[in-house]
Design a protein around this nucleic acid. Structure first.
Lengths: 111, 111
DNA sequence: ACATTATACATAGTGGAACACAGTATGTCA
DNA sequence: TGACATACTGTGTTCCACTATGTATAATGT
């Protein structure tokens, strides 16, 4: 099945949330989380994210030096926990400020 | 010159604004505008956009059946004016609602 | 004991999109 | 005439979300 173009709304909606996704993930990783639980938490809070989107995103953010990760064995299968490091914490603050400026700008544009 | 990775902040900031860009453009095209003037207006209102981003975006939105365009010759060089059509107007309303829902969600996530 | 489902992480492939850069052409002004 | 602003177009690169699929372990049911 090919993606139809009957409603470009869904595609554009995806684009709309695309950048906010990173910010949502970063904001959740102020405390250590593993991918699967993070996905559930985000879904519950109105920001659903596919596995095939979330896991590569976490790897990218770690590769960019924003996250630290470690494997942990508790009950259940091994889990990879991610957490903001100091650079990631600073970036979260910056991005949050940028986000809020964007919201102000968009409010002006949309009215 | 290859894009350096020294600051992922600028890249992520771009991603953040990426989806909002479409919404900003659509909201401005409730009245007919040509690309160059649109770019200046958006820049003045805090949403700068490159030419290489804006012009392809306008073509895409027209190809998706959201905009109508026509060439006009006034004083100065010919200009291509774009304007929302009825489908685009409906989409603007939908996307605006999605945007506002996103803002609510992000407020919850960020605090 | 075996099958099924849920949990947990990963990656290849595809396509869309922003940007840098370059190019084309017209208008204005000294 | 030369310099600069205006106005639009095209090419190549890079990034990334998503789909689909694969691997593996744990929990549950029968």
């Amino acid at each position: 099945m090919v993606r139809t173009n009957e409603s470009s709304a869904s595609t554009l909606d995806t684009e709309l949330r695309r950048g906010a996704l990173v910010l949502a993930v970063l904001s959740h990783l102020r405390t250590a989380q593993y991918g699967y639980s993070l996905r559930q938490a985000l879904t519950e809070q109105g920001m659903p994210i596919e596995e095939g989107t979330l896991y590569p995103l976490l790897r990218r953010l770690e590769a960019q030096g924003l996250l630290a990760s470690d494997w942990r064995i508790e009950d259940g299968p091994p889990r990879r926990y991610y957490k903001l490091n100091s650079k990631g914490t600073r970036l979260l603050a910056d991005l949050t400020a940028n986000w809020q400026a964007l919201v102000v700008t968009m409010n002006r544009l949309l009215k």
